[in-house]
């Protein structure tokens, strides 16, 4: 969300009236994303706090006797893939600042694929878990599906954002020095990875502790 160049033909330049030569500082879009991430974090904080609240308010075993512990293989791979997806995203940000768009384009596509892989793996995981614990069997199942599902939905939205970046790069609207939107989406992508770790730790690992 960077802006136009300094208007030419300034006559009077008193006090701090002058514009910097090139735009500096954080853009409004950058700040909006920061705040969006704040409110999203609060949402996940509320959801994860509810998880632990319901776990510790009851005195029985966790997961309850009717359910078994979540299997770890598929979600571990999924989470790892999503977290590693931050690497191509980081490369894309750096590449978009430089002339030439190929590297940015390729790394954005790779990033997008990591997100798609995560969502697919999540569906695979659900198919493995479903008969054992369902959404409506008990609070454990409700928490399991709604928290992971909420996160999966967020990743899907992230994939859509990256897809738009891919399209914009193809059409030469961004990249080649114009990195603002890539930076902003990257922030969200890193946030998704952090969330993935928090959700993984809560929903998959904590029942073993």
């Amino acid at each position: 969300m960077t802006t136009v160049t300094t208007p030419a033909g300034r006559e009077s330049q008193r006090e701090p009236a002058g514009l910097p030569e090139a735009p500096v500082g954080h853009t409004t879009g950058w700040w909006a994303m920061v705040l969006f991430i704040c409110t999203e974090s609060a949402t996940f904080a509320a959801a994860l706090a509810s998880y632990f609240y319901l776990r510790f308010i009851g005195s029985g075993p966790w997961p309850p006797v009717a359910d078994s512990r979540p299997s770890l293989l598929v979600p571990s791979v999924g989470t790892a893939v999503l977290v590693l997806g931050c690497v191509p995203m980081g490369i894309a940000v750096r590449a978009a600042r430089r002339p030439g768009r190929l590297l940015a384009w390729v790394s954005l596509v790779v990033t997008m694929l990591t997100g798609v892989a995560f969502v697919v793996l999540q569906i695979v995981d659900y198919r493995g878990e479903w008969p054992d614990s369902t959404l409506s069997k008990d609070a454990y199942g409700s928490l399991f599906y709604s928290i992971t599902g909420l996160h999966g939905l967020h990743v899907a939205v992230g994939v859509l954002m990256v897809a738009v970046l891919v399209a914009s790069t193809s059409l030469r609207r961004i990249g080649g020095g114009e990195a603002g939107p890539v930076r902003i989406v990257a922030m969200y992508w890193y946030f998704l990875a952090v969330l993935a770790l928090a959700v993984y730790g809560t929903v998959y690992i904590s029942p073993y502790l």
Binding site: S50, L54, K137, D138, A139, Y140, S142
Partner: peptide
């Protein structure tokens, strides 16, 4: 879902 249903762990 069973978030607020005490008999099922909510």
């Amino acid at each position: 879902t069973r978030f607020f249903v005490p008999s099922d762990g909510g």
